[in-house]
C-alpha cells in the first residue's frame, strides 16, 4: 500500500486528459468524415422552379399490360425482396411493397372500362408529410414526395393518412438492394418518381420509359412549371382528373379519360 502523498497524482490527470482527448476525437471523427463525404455530393440543390409531374392517358393504358409495374420494381430493386417461405399469395400481396399497381375499373352508370396505374400522387400538400412525427416524410422543393429512411421510425401513420394506399412498409429483412434505392426493414417507402434519375439529369422515369417501349405512350412525365413542356401543353389541351380531387391536395400525377 502506498503512502498518501501531498503531491497530486499526475498519472490520474494524464489518464483523464487522454480519455477526454479520445472522447473528443470519437465525437469529431464522424463529422469530419461527413464533411469529406459531402465534398463529393451534388453541389446544386433542388430547385422549386421545377415541379415534376405525370400525366396518364387511360385510353392508351392497355388491359393486362404490366410493363410499368415490372420496370418500376426492377429499377428500384422491389423485385429483389424474397417472399417469406410458405407465405400465401394473399398475404404476400398485402405485405410486399407495391410502388405502382395496375387497376381496372368499370363505371357503375355507363359500364365503361378503364385501366390505369396508381402510384404516389406527389401531392402539393401531402397528408403523409403532415402526419409524420419526425418529418421523415417530406416533399422536395421540386415536388417529389419521399421518405428519409434515416429518420423514419416505422410508425406507419403516413400509411394511415395517404388517400391512395401508395405507401409500403418493409415487413421483412432486406438481403439485396440497389445503391440507388436504399431500403430497410421497418421503414416506409413509396414511388419517388425515380429521383435518382432526375438527380443524375435524366428526365424520364422507369415506368414512362417502359410504357413507351411497349409502344403505348400512356405516361407523360415532365415539369409542370415549364409552360412549354410536353406535359404542360397536354394538360392545357385536354381536361384532366385528379384522384380524390375533393381533398384539394393538388396532385402532381393527373389522369385523362378516367
Amino acid at each position: 500500500m502506498t503512502e498518501p502523498s501531498e503531491q497530486p497524482n499526475t498519472k490520474r490527470r494524464e489518464f483523464i486528459g487522454k480519455s477526454l482527448l479520445a472522447a473528443g476525437a470519437a465525437l469529431a471523427a464522424p463529422q469530419v468524415l461527413l464533411i469529406v463525404a459531402n465534398v463529393r455530393a451534388e453541389t446544386q440543390g433542388v430547385s422549386s422552379e421545377v415541379r415534376w409531374g405525370m400525366l396518364v392517358d387511360t385510353n392508351k393504358c392497355v388491359d393486362g399490360c404490366t410493363s410499368c409495374v415490372d420496370a418500376c420494381h426492377r429499377e428500384n430493386g422491389v423485385d429483389l425482396l424474397q417472399r417469406p417461405t410458405g407465405q400465401q399469395d394473399e398475404m404476400w400481396n398485402a405485405q410486399r411493397p407495391q410502388w405502382i399497381r395496375k387497376v381496372k375499373l368499370r363505371d357503375r352508370q355507363t359500364g365503361r372500362v378503364t385501366n390505369l396505374p396508381v402510384m404516389c400522387q406527389h401531392c402539393e400538400f401531402p397528408p403523409c408529410a403532415d402526419v409524420c412525427p419526425t418529418g421523415a416524410s417530406f416533399k422536395r422543393a421540386d415536388g417529389i414526395v419521399m421518405v428519409d429512411r434515416h429518420t423514419c421510425i416505422g410508425c406507419r401513420y403516413c400509411m394511415m393518412a395517404c388517400p391512395y394506399k401508395a405507401r409500403s412498409f418493409i415487413h421483412q429483412n432486406v438481403e439485396n438492394k440497389m445503391v440507388r434505392a436504399p431500403r430497410g426493414k421497418g421503414c416506409v417507402e413509396s414511388c419517388n418518381l425515380c429521383v435518382h434519375r432526375i438527380d443524375a439529369g435524366n428526365a424520364t422515369t422507369a415506368c414512362q420509359e417502359a410504357c413507351a417501349k411497349e409502344g403505348h405512350h400512356a405516361i407523360l412525365f415532365g415539369d409542370l412549371k415549364d409552360p412549354q413542356s410536353a406535359i404542360s401543353l397536354a394538360l392545357k389541351a385536354q381536361g384532366s382528373y385528379q384522384i380524390r380531387a375533393d381533398l384539394e391536395l393538388n396532385t402532381g400525377v393527373r389522369y385523362t379519360n378516367l
Binding site: C132, P133, T134, I153, G154, C155, R156, I170, K185, G186
Partner: peptide
C-alpha cells in the same frame, strides 16, 4: 410495435409540429 423501435431517440429529438403524433410525444 414500431418498425424501428431503436430510433426512439429520433422520435424525441426530431419533431414535425404539424403532426399530431409529434404533439402526442
Amino acid at each position: 410495435d414500431l418498425g424501428r423501435p431503436e430510433r426512439l431517440i429520433v422520435a424525441i429529438t426530431t419533431y414535425n409540429f404539424k403532426s399530431i403524433f409529434a404533439w402526442n410525444i
